[in-house]
Design a protein around this nucleic acid. Structure first.
Lengths: 224, 224
DNA sequence: TCTTGCCGAAGTGTTGACAGTTATACGGGC
DNA sequence: GCCCGTATAACTGTCAACACTTCGGCAAGA
């Protein structure tokens, strides 16, 4: 009973709105107007409503009854919260993958990682996605590869800089994969949590320097 | 800018459908029919669609384009996945609460816990909710108190038995609260993960005994 | 009897109009 | 100029009808 992969207007509009948000055409905190979007995508307001609700369900849009929906602000504090959650879930994800993935699958992941690293390709999100798939836990996969995935993409698109150190990320990923290979779930989880915890700490530093910078002068109102 | 707490038809229908599912009027795996529900709640199909989509977003309903939506099956394997995720997130939740909650708030939680235990009240979900609130992490709170909360409620309503041992749960909660009081985030997290990990293991046992029971004879088709 | 194909019924997806709520603009008074 | 009240415009929530897809029943053929 595998249904055909139908694509409804809601799916198309969802992707379209997410793209507008990614590109900043609807800025962070900006208004999401159903009627305008319906005109833009040449559909009725119904599918737009449903797409907006779906984006709301992924934490990308804030919506209250009768009020104009808004794109989430994605403050640094918000990102700290997301990374704390992600640390816990990615830790469990790699623990389960260490236990559940076959030797062959782990070897293949290691080989692809080594291959991509030689080519200087961006593989950071892919490794996490692959581990989540290997965890065999559909709920964890759904959370990491759906809701948190969109939030991370948005954060990276809007902030430019990655909350992590690109120079050591390769080494940390490698160590995680090695721990998986040796079937040490405790070590794998600990390494993954440290890996993400460092990014969280980096965000914390930004948050602190931001509040110190703001303290001596009047908080500058954002134009948008 | 706190909007009034408006309640739309979608909210009402969401609660109504969830209630039908809780009571088994729509059984696990059962069909969710928009037109029938619209008649039942005396609304148009629009709000029903939106409510169904919202329930889908919480993992309670499975839906593909043009196919009839269905209530999730909530198999034991599914519950194991949910509890594994919950273990990770509740662990991080109590870690953050141990760090972030004020002494006064922790004392109050301890006092309320002791009070409720004398009265033999059901406080299990409340403690977890309170800890999530105390974590100060809105994403964790949202996940534990929204999506996972509904799934847990549904599981308990449909399965009757709690995946846990009521006799030792009090003691385990108490130890967790004590670890919070002494400001030991590592211990608090470890205790919480053990607490939920035991429930997960109980589910695993059920899953194993289920598959052993099914192995020697033809798998009995469920009537529903 | 079993299998396949066709057609109509049952259901889902979308539309445009109406109903209800919030936001904005304008005028009057202080 | 500022504040308040009112009216209207702009928006969100809902409705009923139409468009499109799936499902089930029946008939025909092997």
């Amino acid at each position: 009973m595998a249904p055909k992969q139908q694509k409804t207007l809601v799916d198309t509009v969802f992707d379209g709105i997410f793209d507008l948000i990614l590109k900043g055409e609807i800025p962070l905190g900006g208004v999401v107007n159903e009627a305008v979007l319906a005109e833009r995508f040449k559909v009725s307001r119904g599918p737009v409503r449903e797409a907006v609700k779906a984006l709301q369900g992924r934490g990308l849009i804030i919506k209250e009854p009768y009020y104009k929906a808004r794109v989430v602000d994605l403050s640094l504090a918000d990102m700290v919260h997301i990374f704390q959650l992600r640390e816990a879930v990615e830790g469990m994800s790699v623990r389960l993958a260490t236990i559940n993935m076959s030797d062959q699958a782990i070897d293949q992941l290691l080989a692809e990682f080594a291959d991509a690293s030689e080519k200087q390709q961006r593989i950071v999100l892919d490794v996490h996605v692959r581990i989540a798939e290997g965890s065999g836990n559909r709920r964890i996969q759904s959370l990491l590869c759906d809701e948190l995935y969109y939030l991370l993409r948005l954060y990276r698109a809007r902030s430019g800089a990655q909350p992590g150190r690109r120079d050591t990320a390769f080494s940390e990923h490698w160590q995680i994969l090695r721990a998986m290979k040796t079937r040490d779930p405790d070590l794998a989880e600990s390494l993954m949590r440290s890996h993400i915890g460092r990014a969280t700490e980096g965000l914390h530093q930004l948050l602190r320097s931001e509040s110190e910078k703001a303290a001596p002068v009047r908080r500058q109102k954002q134009v948008g």
